[in-house]
Amino acid sequence: MSPVAWDLFLFFLKLSLVAVGGANAAVPSMHQEVVELRHWMTDAAFSQGYALASAAPGPNVLFVAVIGWHVAGWQGLAASLVGFLGPTFILAWAVAMLTQRVAHDARMAALRAGLVPVAIGLILATGLVTGAAAARGTGTEVAAAVVITAASALFVWRSNLSPIWTLLAGGVVGLVVMQG
């Protein structure tokens, strides 16, 4: 492994176990290390990579693969992903083992049920924050953004149809009214 790929691996390994809230919550730390401290990426490349990772399907954590690839090619990609996902895989595995062993313990049941409202509350917050970030541009575009977001929320909440339809519709509406 190249020295840079090794550095990437160690950085993401350390970041992994403090990244409560997933990759999005760790993005400020990544920016600090990769752009400000080490100058591995420019600010523009970092922002563009983040935008692409958010726009592409799949978990946003794949942004770390984009960073790794930018900094050290395919080796960097592998080093970053394994470094960031490895420790959390092992920890989740261990916690799953423990919770399954004491699944019928009343305290464990209370713990599991108690975390549900917080998790759902945080999901709503993620939607609100990304929705607010997407409500930008001219007055018409902001209005269109709010309407698309609200209509999409209503669609997914109340209908049993696949959310792919609301995503496609949002894209088409964007195509028509958001070419600012």
């Binding site: 958010s54 726009a55 999901i123 709503l124 993620t126 939607g127 609100l128 990304t130 929705g131 997407a134 409500a135 541009g137 575009e141 269109a144 953004a145 698309i148 977001t149 609200a150 209509a151 999409s152 929320a153 209503l154 669609f155 997914v156 909440w157 109340r158 959310p163 609301t166 995503l167 519709a169 949002g170 894209g171 088409v172 509406v173 964007g174 195509l175 009214v177 958001m178």
Partner: peptide, 14 residues
């Protein structure tokens, strides 16, 4: 841009 708005709404609706 439109897709990003719809995706945010999808997360809220979920």
């Amino acid at each position: 841009h439109g897709l990003a708005c719809a995706a945010a709404g999808m997360v809220i609706g979920n």
